[in-house]
């Protein structure tokens, strides 16, 4: 490993590879990210709750403004972790594993609220809380993968030891993301097909599309804000672990 600070002009990538620099920069960005996230979520949810009732779904359509962003996020967070996993395996970026470990619990929470809100929406609209159709099952599998990843990243006492195996699990699990996205086209599902990301444009009036996109933006910003905080915490946790070992060694040497 070469000393980053020794080279004359480090690239942006390597500046971010230095955890101390990362802590400085993220500390400055963090409050703005939380602020923007809260404003967007508030505006999106307000517009969503005041949107007119759907002619078929009635008022339950308001559940869409949280359910759909949660579903998008559950897939996006795994994608973010997959990019980080590449960072671990290909570039050995020191923060890549921190990113995977920090994102996993946040992804699990967004996936579980996606499942819960979907279930609550399904009861009045489909007449059932749950069916084992392709979309619902593949998202449930995603949730289980998040739980497995959380267990793996926290199984070993020394933080960071599980980096490689966690990265491999994340990349293997990425197979599920296109399966979730296209499950509604490939199989006969109770879940409706895509209505925003379609080849022929969104099939949704602006009164629904605008609050949906603002709400999605808000929750995405919220994820990145929480992820940043969790990453900072993980860096500190690794420092605490390293210093604790140092303290133990010193105490041993003194005796």
């Amino acid at each position: 490993m070469t000393d980053v600070s020794a080279s004359a002009k480090p690239s942006r990538f390597s500046i971010l590879a230095n955890p101390t620099r990362f802590l400085e920069l993220s500390g400055r960005v963090q409050p703005w990210l939380y602020g923007a996230a809260l404003i967007a979520v508030a505006v999106g949810v307000f517009l969503g709750l005041t949107a007119p009732a759907d002619y078929q779904q009635g008022a339950t359509v308001t559940i869409m403004f949280i359910h759909v962003p949660f579903a998008w996020l559950s897939m996006m967070i795994w994608t973010v972790m997959s990019l980080s996993a590449l960072g671990t395996l290909v570039w050995r970026h020191p923060l890549a594993d921190v990113s995977v470990k920090a994102a996993a619990p946040i992804g699990a929470v967004f996936t579980v609220v996606c499942l819960i809100t979907g279930s609550i929406w399904g009861r009045p609209m489909w007449g059932t809380w749950w069916v084992w159709d392709a979309r619902l099952t593949s998202v449930f599998v995603l949730f289980l993968m998040y739980l497995g990843l959380i267990a793996l990243t926290r199984a070993l006492e020394e933080p960071g030891k599980s980096a490689k195996s966690a990265a491999i699990l994340v990349l293997v699990g990425f197979v599920n993301i296109p399966i979730i996205k296209f499950s509604v086209d490939w199989w006969n599902t109770l879940h409706q097909p895509a209505s925003v990301l379609r080849v022929d444009g969104p099939a949704m009036p602006a009164a629904y599309l605008t609050p949906l996109l603002i709400s999605a933006l808000g929750f995405t910003l919220l994820f990145f804000a929480l992820h940043l905080t969790a990453m900072r915490t993980e860096i500190l946790r690794r420092r605490v672990a390293a210093l604790s070992r140092l303290a133990a060694r010193r105490a041993e040497a003194a005796h």
Partner: peptide
Amino acid sequence: SGHAAEAG
């Protein structure tokens, strides 16, 4: 300044 690898 420290080594990036050590600080991580």
